[in-house]
Structures are given as structure tokens and as C-alpha cells.
């Protein structure tokens, strides 16, 4: 059993932030529970359970989507089903169906493993991250800052991730996330998220992110540049080749480094093709 000194059940965000401030380094927010419940030994935490702090809304605004940090993958996969994107793809393949009732978008973003799925999609989609701390302080970090290193190091003590903001998709754009795993429900051996903007069959811009291969999600800038200004079908092979060479990978029991690099190239092709199909369906 995890060693927990006390567990608090705040009824509002403000109450939660006060508790976080009060307990400082020892405060441990509890979202879906997959990290906290598995902790063994070590420090004695003060757990701040966020289930009732009112952070699970998914709201469509004029500038895009505001997703409460406590929205579960199950809710995301369902809530976004009408407009398939890299995020709905990723939310639908995090762990197993039962696990997706636990895993929250906030938890999945705050404790990032090499195999995490949602951060890969969110980096491709240009998400930003709304952080709050006691006393009404708020700040919003773009994805490149939030995921520059393990987010726990980016966030200040007492700070909570309260929402993920997704810009409204540009006209003629589409996105997709694909993952290769040993079997259903396994963590990614490799994954790729792609977002493209089309202009009359030409890729105006692309953003590609690889996950599952090593460390934090990796932006594939070279592969994306290889697509820009081209007809996708003509440039995909080159983009895959560039992705393979630019991605950094490691070997473990989910696959060897060399194979993983190769698979990232394949998945770039798969993700971009799906993203383009979606862009065209959206009227590109």
C-alpha cells in the first residue's frame, strides 16, 4: 500500500490549491490514481484528491477546446468521437478500456513516461497548459515549454495543471495518432502524431511528433519540413526517411533502437495519410 500520511478531498479548485500550498513539496495531487496507488515505500505523502475539485469539464469555446485536467481518457475518447483527431485517437488507445476510466489527461501529461500517448498527440496539436496556484495565480505554458522536460520539474511546488487548451483546427487541417504495441493494451513500442494543413492538395504545414521510442515526445522537425510545400504522396517517403534518421531511440523489451527508428518512419506515413484524409473530409 502506498504510504500516505493524510488524504484530503477538496470540494473546489481553490480549496485544492490552498492544500497544495499548505503542504508544499509533500503535497501529491491524486488524479486517476495510476501513479499514486502504485507508489511503494519512500516518502509519506499528503494526498490531495482532485476528483471533486470540478476539473473534468470538456468545453468548446470560440478559440478551441478547453479540457479539464481531470477529464478521463474514456470521456475524451467519447467526447471527441464526433471530430476524430490525434487526441481522440490517442485517448482511445491509452491502456485498456477499464484503465481509460481511470487515466486522466492531466495525470497523463504531468507524469510522462517514454510510452505515454496523450503528450505525443498534444504536442502535435499545439496544445497549451493552464497552471494554477493558490492566491488566484494562473499561467499558461505552450506545449514546447510544458514538455521541455519532465513537467513535474517545470511546475512549481503547489502548482496544479487545471486545463489543457487546444486551438481550434485551422480550415483544411487534419490530425491523427498511430501507435504500434506488442498487443492490445500494451504501452507503445513507437507512436507518431501528425497534424497537417492542406492547401489545394499541397501540404502548407505539418507537425510530426514521435513517442514511445525514448524519453519525452520528440518533435520531428526535419520530417515535417520535408512535407511542407509538397504533395504529400510525393514527399512521404522522404519524410519517413528523415524521421527515421532524426528520431532518437533506445532498446528495451518493447523493441530495439534500430527497429524503432524504422517503425517511426512507417508510422509517419500512416499518421500523415490519415491526417490528410481527415483534412480533405473537413473540406480542404
Amino acid at each position: 500500500m502506498p504510504e500516505v500520511e493524510a488524504l484530503h478531498r477538496p470540494r473546489s479548485l481553490d480549496e485544492a490549491l490552498d492544500l497544495m500550498a499548505q503542504h508544499g513539496e509533500r503535497a501529491r495531487p491524486l488524479a486517476g490514481g495510476t501513479t499514486v496507488a502504485l507508489a511503494r515505500g519512500g516518502r509519506r505523502d499528503v494526498v490531495v484528491a482532485l476528483a471533486r475539485a470540478g476539473l473534468d469539464a470538456i468545453e468548446q469555446g470560440p478559440d478551441g477546446l478547453r479540457i479539464g485536467a481531470m477529464a478521463s481518457c474514456a470521456a475524451l475518447a467519447k467526447g471527441l468521437a464526433g471530430s476524430p483527431s490525434a487526441l481522440s485517437d490517442a485517448a482511445a488507445v491509452v491502456g485498456t478500456r477499464v484503465l481509460r476510466n481511470h487515466v486522466t489527461i492531466g495525470g497523463n501529461c504531468c507524469v510522462v513516461y517514454a510510452w505515454s500517448d496523450l503528450p505525443v498527440a498534444l504536442r502535435a496539436l499545439g496544445a497549451s497548459f493552464e497552471l494554477a496556484s493558490a492566491g488566484g495565480r494562473r499561467r499558461v505554458l505552450p506545449e514546447e515549454a510544458f514538455f521541455a522536460q519532465q513537467p513535474s520539474r517545470v511546475m512549481a511546488a503547489g502548482e496544479l495543471l487545471v486545463a489543457i487548451l487546444l486551438p481550434a483546427p485551422a480550415p483544411g487541417s487534419g490530425s491523427a495518432f498511430v501507435k504500434l504495441a506488442r498487443n492490445a493494451g500494451d504501452h507503445a513500442s513507437a507512436s507518431v502524431a501528425a497534424r497537417v494543413e492542406l492547401d489545394g492538395g499541397i501540404v502548407r504545414s505539418a507537425r510530426l511528433v514521435a513517442g514511445g521510442v525514448k524519453g519525452m515526445p520528440q518533435v520531428l522537425a526535419g520530417a515535417a519540413a520535408a512535407l511542407a510545400g509538397c504533395r504529400a504522396e510525393e514527399a512521404l517517403e522522404e519524410a519517413a526517411r528523415v524521421a527515421e534518421s532524426e528520431v532518437d531511440s533506445t532498446s528495451d523489451f518493447r523493441g530495439g533502437a534500430e527497429w524503432r527508428k524504422h517503425v517511426v518512419g512507417v508510422l509517419v506515413g500512416d499518421a500523415v495519410r490519415t491526417a490528410i484524409d481527415r483534412a480533405i473530409r473537413m473540406g480542404a
Binding site: T96, R182, N183, A184, G185, D186, H187, D252, F253
Partner: peptide, 15 residues
């Protein structure tokens, strides 16, 4: 290195 069901994969219904 993989002594858990997370990392040693036995088949589920979808497999």
C-alpha cells in the same frame, strides 16, 4: 526486467 502484466503481455480479448 518485465515481471508484471504491464510489461509481460499475455493475450486479452482484443488479441
Amino acid at each position: 526486467l518485465n515481471a508484471s502484466f504491464r510489461h509481460y503481455r499475455i493475450p486479452g480479448t482484443l488479441d
